[in-house]
Write a protein that binds this DNA or RNA. Structure first.
Lengths: 105, 105
DNA sequence: ATCCTTGTTCGACGTTCGACGAACATCGTA
DNA sequence: TACGATGTTCGTCGAACGTCGAACAAGGAT
């Protein structure tokens, strides 16, 4: 479980990849959880999908540069790369997070 | 050519649909053109796809609520629903447009 | 050493997407 | 009326996506 997790460097973040990562309701929910609760281990998300599917979504978010995944013992801690996103795409994450709650309501 | 073009009302714009519409390079280019040049007829976009494909992309943008398509004689004028997007998702379009040029460079 | 917990990877399946050309519809004009 | 220009729709194709269960890998605890 300790492979070399690939995280794109901040300068190489692609807008279309980030937008695509955020355009799925499950992944958007994960991002919202992270923004509200801070870092989480993979099992802490309340998403209605199988764990293999969750793992896939977390991989998409990580490879798009939206999240950071760090091994921590037998778990993995997932967090938002908020500062990196802000420096590469100023205002984008804030705009998405500001809008997301209205979606849920 | 004068069907009832469906445009979702501002209150019903869905964030995931908007993000998905913007997550394709072709469509992002169209949005960037519209932001820079104002309204365009369908043929005025310099996109490397067949016209049927362009029509499809314009339909995706329209149904997500990103663009407004109005018949004008034998043509159709496409424009950005910038104000609607701003009121529903404040800052989102600006953030995307600010980032887009860096992608192209 | 043996489990148990956590999370990833591997096919498999069905759906959606992006692309194209051909055919069609519409409006303006000759 | 007939033609031409502008877009849309249809049918098709391969690729990518989202989902699942089963099998696997790794670290901690007993």
């Amino acid at each position: 479980m300790s492979e070399h997790l690939h995280h794109p460097p901040t300068e190489e973040l692609e807008l279309t990849a980030v937008l695509h990562a955020l355009s799925d309701p499950i992944r958007l929910g994960i991002v919202r959880d992270l923004a509200g609760n801070g870092a989480c281990n993979c099992g802490a998300f309340s998403v209605p999908v199988a764990k293999s599917t969750l793992s896939h979504h977390l991989k998409v978010l990580r490879e798009a540069g939206v999240t950071l995944t760090e091994p921590a013992g037998t778990q993995r801690v997932v967090s938002l790369r908020a500062a990196d996103l802000e420096s590469r795409f100023p205002g984008l994450l804030d705009a998405v997070l500001a809008a997301a709650p209205a979606e849920a309501a």
